[in-house]
């Protein structure tokens, strides 16, 4: 009896069993971290912001071969695109020279009409240009990592925009890199205004799918093609910035196609909106 018990103890204490037990313990720790939603705690947020630049630096060095392969493929595709554009340019050269005069006169006319209508220029904000260094937009937790020369001027919740419209907001930052939470991230919530009638709603990220707008009272008045802009409520995003266009309406579910495709961008601008608001 004692002999068999000793055997069992020896088996449990054997090196392979100890490794197995250790793996189980670490597995459960990981599971507790994940299911307990440790990422929502302040300590997790601090840990993430302190370690993002370290992990980025490591991955930047380690993934150099991948980067070389990727840039090689990209260069080939770019070269092909340049040749295609050159062909197209040669074909259009003759027609373009004829229509140039027409375009100039049209622009002058538009300027005159704007003067007559007493239109004011779009509100402008101070901005900081940042380079996209890593793109994780194709995941359900869509984020990008950005690097800026003026990193000290960045702050949490700073609105991020592309040339056409809004992209997301800064969710974490340290002295080297910052992370932007994109509008398609499932954690993203953005107060929006739909169509010229300014129907209010909240746009919710859906991962790889188009975001949807919820909590719209007059959802029956909304049509496919209506423009979606930021409403300015909540104080994070400035109002009237283009977000996208309504592409599908299914009951109360309003689907929006975002105007900005982050995979096509190399740089983004971060709007110094909070700074302007404080000065007002």
């Amino acid at each position: 009896m004692r002999f068999s018990r000793n055997l069992r103890v020896q088996k449990i204490l054997s090196p392979s069993s100890r490794v197995f037990i250790l793996a189980i313990i670490l597995f459960f720790i990981s599971l507790i971290l994940f299911l307990g939603r440790f990422e929502l705690t302040q300590s997790a947020k601090n840990l993430r912001s302190y370690t993002t630049s370290i992990s980025y630096s490591i991955s930047y060095i380690v993934s150099t071969p991948s980067k070389l392969i990727n840039s090689g493929i990209q260069s080939i595709l770019d070269l092909k695109e340049i040749y295609n554009q050159l062909d197209e340019y040669n074909r259009n050269q003759l027609t373009e020279s004829a229509s140039f005069q027409e375009v100039v006169s049209m622009k002058l006319k538009i300027a005159q009409y704007e003067d007559l209508l007493n239109l004011t220029a779009d509100q402008e904000y101070d901005f900081i240009t940042s380079r996209i260094v890593a793109n994780f937009s194709n995941k359900f937790i869509g984020t990008i990592l950005i690097k800026s020369d003026e990193a000290e001027k960045l702050f949490i919740d700073m609105p991020a925009a592309g040339p056409d419209g809004i992209l997301g907001r800064v969710s974490s930052l340290d002295n080297k890199v910052a992370r932007v939470l994109l509008l398609n991230n499932i954690n993203s919530r953005l107060p929006v205004s739909i169509s010229e009638d300014a129907h209010q709603g909240i746009m919710i990220g859906q991962g790889q799918n188009n975001p949807i707008i919820e909590y719209v009272r007059e959802y029956k008045n909304i049509k496919v093609g209506d423009l979606v802009t930021t409403s300015g409520k909540g104080g994070i995003f400035p109002p009237y910035l283009v977000v996208g266009q309504v592409t599908r309406i299914k009951g109360e579910r309003i689907e929006v196609e975002l105007i900005e495709d982050v995979s096509q961008l190399t740089h983004i601008i971060l709007l110094n909106y909070k700074f302007n608001k404080d000065n007002e």
């Binding site: 793996a23 670490l26 720790i29 990981s30 507790i32 971290l33 994940f34 997790a44 490591i58 937790i141």
Partner: peptide, 24 residues
């Protein structure tokens, strides 16, 4: 076991997935 645990945390920090997702 420790290396896999740390690699998971590294993955979570880099990709911004919830802590513990990749290590588990």
């Amino acid at each position: 076991c420790f290396v896999l645990f740390l690699l998971g945390i590294y993955n979570d920090i880099l990709v911004s997935t919830p802590f513990g997702y990749a290590s588990s």
